[in-house]
Design a protein around this nucleic acid. Structure first.
Lengths: 338, 338
DNA sequence: AAACAAACTGACAGCGCTGTCATCTCAATT
DNA sequence: AATTGAGATGACAGCGCTGTCAGTTTGTTT
């Protein structure tokens, strides 16, 4: 027995195909009694609309694309789960599309997704969302896009951001309050705008407390565990080593903790370490990591809502800001000499 | 300027629509010169076939579904990346579908995906792949399925597995070779068949070396970091505590390491710990974790190939087995008294 | 050179929906 | 009772492809 089509339902309910379509799509202007007839016919035949047929007829795929190029599994999973939550609620599917932001053909690759009618819109996550050229080309091609990034060009497309700079500022202040004056910073990947903002927060806090930024205390990392470990190595080898290290993300902070372990430094007694992101590793290491939690899945959930609004032609320029919160764990404590 | 359709290409190339379709789908029986004409017309018009139109006409979505219910981000990401690699190569898209294996309506939910023509086939990962009822219903509904699980019913549908039992056996032997005789085991979630097999490997190794299995040394965990930490707590509180702990997965092993840290036990000098999976945390903790690496993304890559073969009506009952390898890191060493 | 098979190509009818627009219904108004 | 118009419904033409099958060309055989 073949699957029921919209015609079967229409015949059984004694209405036209179009009315069934109205009911299925929750369109207005259907009499309540008619709606019920149709609904019971749908139930009786166990009818499910064919996704491909509606896509073709309506000229939209009911699929959103999630683009990312991020080595952190937990970040990606969080983004996915938020986006999926919205998608399910709103009747959309989600196509995940990891890709390399360094690939020369990335713009072509992404446009191709849209040109084939595979997706109705795109969510860009860092660092892709920070690629000006990519965003511009997509906007120009009239592809609905939402960015998960802080932004200056507020008008160009909807976006969702967190106040990374503010959170990093607060974290730095906490370390200062604990008596640390020499606080090392392991900076994240320069292409990743949100991570760069964390450095600005650190700088600003030092500035506000009238502590000169010692360039020797700032190391350039690349978001990875290994880079964090190498940077910490250098910081700890300094004659006048820092008593606290603030890393631009948790992976690098975890690397710093390992480097300290290997030097036999006890934490937090001799050294405090703070991270950013609250990835799972943050509470799986010893000592557990003081860090900043971002509402990643809330952000992507919101991003999908903005994206659908944009697809449905609602006002552009929508935006959303969300707050981070600091999680104090075992890895931070009073400065040694205090 | 609207997007080019297959008719535009046909007109420009001076052939019929159908011939363009043949070229696009790489069907045989097209003369080389014709193919070239068509290809250059495609290039000139920058033509991309509409996914929805081909889905409707061909009655397949060119999308596969990946079902999972696994709290480990790194596992999920690995599975995704392998599956995506195959999908891209073979012209398919991948729909990710996290779901709860404890949900009462899961079968309904999954069947609905297929009934709507959203996916042409499904990849089931543990623990969903171990749900006999679910698998049976899908097979009965003639849904192409591949399981990422060890299996007894070899005939029922294609599957890809690893030799978890063998790897756990070997790991246990290594610990025995290091002089450990009291080896604790933290068992994984009983619903997760592959993890259960690891326990069998442990038992078998003890058996082969004529060491009686002490039930006090076996704790029941649930795959999570916290459960591992609690189990280790109990093992280490034993009057006659083990000198080594083998956990059914890395998260639990990481929990065990933290528990040991909190007791001030030094590893590996006083206690060896081994895990299974080689998740990122394995080399981000201190001491870094001796574990077993599974070719997860290779497995899911292979699974997609088997699935497409099954969709295309090729011989059923296909299977694939892949090997694990042991990674010796800092967390294991000689037994203390040796 | 005729006969035949194999390779190649095209005409056409849908696939199962949605958008458009015309039509119909019926309560509210005059 | 006639008029009106918003609300409710339906007829119909595609959306852009693929499958089927018939027709045409080419190469091979005797």
């Amino acid at each position: 027995m073949a699957r029921a089509t919209i015609d079967d339902v229409a015949a059984l309910a004694g209405v036209s195909m179009k009315t069934v379509s109205r009911v299925v799509n929750k369109e207005p202007n259907v009499r309540a009694t008619t709606r019920e007839k149709v609904e019971s016919a749908i139930a009786e035949l166990d009818y499910r609309p064919s996704q491909s047929a509606r896509s073709l007829a309506a000229n939209r795929s009911y699929v959103l694309g999630l683009l990312y190029d991020n080595p952190s599994a937990s970040y990606v999973i969080d983004v996915q789960s938020g986006a999926l939550a919205s998608c399910r609620r709103l009747g959309y599917d989600l196509l995940i599309h990891p890709c390399s932001h360094e690939s020369a053909s990335i713009i072509e690759e992404v446009l191709s997704l849209v040109r084939q009618n595979r997706v109705d819109g795109l969510i860009l996550t860092p660092p892709l969302s920070d690629m000006v050229e990519l965003v511009h080309q997509l906007v120009e091609a009239k592809v609905p896009v939402v960015r998960l990034s802080p932004t200056e060009d507020k008008k160009i497309c909807p976006y969702v951001q967190t106040n990374d700079q503010q959170a990093a500022y607060e974290m730095t202040c906490r370390l200062l309050d604990l008596g640390h004056t020499r606080i090392g910073f392991i900076a994240g990947h320069p292409d990743h705008k949100a991570v760069v903002q964390r450095f600005l927060g650190y700088k600003q806090a030092l500035d506000d407390r009238a502590i000169a930024l010692d360039p020797a205390l700032v190391e350039q990392g690349y978001n990875s565990f290994d880079s964090g470990s190498e940077c910490a190595e250098r910081l700890l080898a300094l004659a006048d080593a820092p008593t606290a290290i603030f890393a631009g993300n948790d992976d690098m902070a975890a690397g710093a903790i390992i480097a300290a372990h290997h030097r036999g430094i006890s934490m937090p007694a001799e050294l405090s370490i703070a991270g950013f992101d609250d990835t799972p590793v943050a509470h799986q290491i010893y000592p557990s990591l003081t860090t900043v939690r971002q509402p990643i899945s809330d952000m992507s959930e919101r991003a999908v809502e903005l994206l659908l609004r944009s697809i449905d032609g609602k006002p552009k320029g929508a935006e959303a800001s969300m707050d981070c919160c600091i999680l104090e764990r075992e890895s931070t404590g009073k400065a040694p000499s205090v």
